[in-house]
Each structure stands twice: as structure tokens, then as C-alpha cells.
Simulated assay, not measured.
Amino acid sequence: MSPVRKKRFYMVLLLLTGVSIATFLIIQAFSQNMMFFFSTTEVKQGKAPADRDFRLGGLVVNHSVQRESGSLKVHFELTDSQTPVKVEYSGILPDLFREGQGIIAKGRLNDQGVFVAKEVLAKHDENYMPPEVADSINKAQLASSEPVQP
């Protein structure tokens, strides 16, 4: 092999190695930052990951919001009209957060099965509900309804 061909071969090999490493790093970054959505029923069925963060959506159960005095810690329940899940959040809740409204919380389950939220997102107007929450509520209502007999 001539020196020019040898040099070209090593440059192509170096370029392919660089592209392979860059592709690997990009795929790793996407997989670590990907956050899946789960309904409360799916969480209770054990479909949610125990070792990583995910999004949980539903309606805040009426009369379930409990605030700890002297701290920013709040306990409440989310439901998809079928199964409630206890949620714990420490921080300032959005202004639009209230009982009976749709929210999405980001966090993970603890050992007791309580969802520990790192962030709580509330809907931004009276008519809007996050699509994931609306879909999970509709699915839960369809699953719980009995078939109509003729």
C-alpha cells in the first residue's frame, strides 16, 4: 500500500470512529433524558419503572390535598377516574393547581409506592387538559364501563 493510500485509509478509519462515538453519545443522552407518561392505573399495575423518573398524570382527587404546616410539603392523590395514587411534593405548587383539575407530575415512586414529585405542572386555562391525562381518563372510563346488553 502506498503512503498516500495508507494515510487516506487512516483518515477514513479515524472519521468512522469519530462518527461512531458521536452517535453512541447522542443515543445515550436521548435514552437518559427520555421520560415516559403513565396513568395512575398503570402505576398501580406495576407498569411504571421503579428505577427512573417518569410523568404521572391525572385529576387531583377532591379533599385529598394536605399541606404540612411549617413546610412546603404537600400530599395529595391523583386519579384517572379509576385508581388513585398518593403523591408527595415539596415546593411551591403552580397557581392553577386545585382539586378536581388535571395535572402532570414528574418524579419517581418510593419504596412505599408513593409518587415523589420533583415538578408539578398544572393546566394553563379552564378548557385545557394535557392530552396524556385526557387519554388515560378516557381509557379508564371505557375499561370500567360495562357492556350494554340489548
Rank of each mutant, 00 (worst) to 15 (best):
T79A: 00
S145Y: 06
T79D: 00
K106N: 13
A22E: 04
K73Q: 14
F97K: 14
P131F: 07
P94T: 01
D51H: 09
L78S: 02
Q112G: 04
A22D: 01
N127Y: 03
A48Q: 10
Q66W: 02
L59F: 15
Q66F: 12
Y128W: 09
E77C: 09
P130M: 03
G102P: 09
F115T: 06
K73A: 15
A143L: 12
R52H: 02
R8Q: 08
L56F: 06
P49V: 00
P94H: 01
L56N: 09
V133N: 02
L56E: 08
V43Y: 09
E146W: 14
G107Y: 10
G46R: 12
S2R: 06
R67W: 02
N127Q: 07
S145E: 13
Q82V: 00
F37W: 11
T41D: 05
I92F: 07
F38E: 07
K6A: 07
L121W: 02
L121T: 14
L15V: 05
D80W: 07
D111S: 15
K106A: 11
L121P: 00
K118L: 08
K44A: 08
A48H: 11
T17K: 01
P94A: 00
K6T: 08
I26W: 05
F37M: 14
S39G: 15
M129T: 15
K86N: 10
G102T: 03
I104K: 03
K73C: 05
G113W: 05
F97L: 12
V148Q: 15
M1D: 13
Q149C: 01
K6N: 08
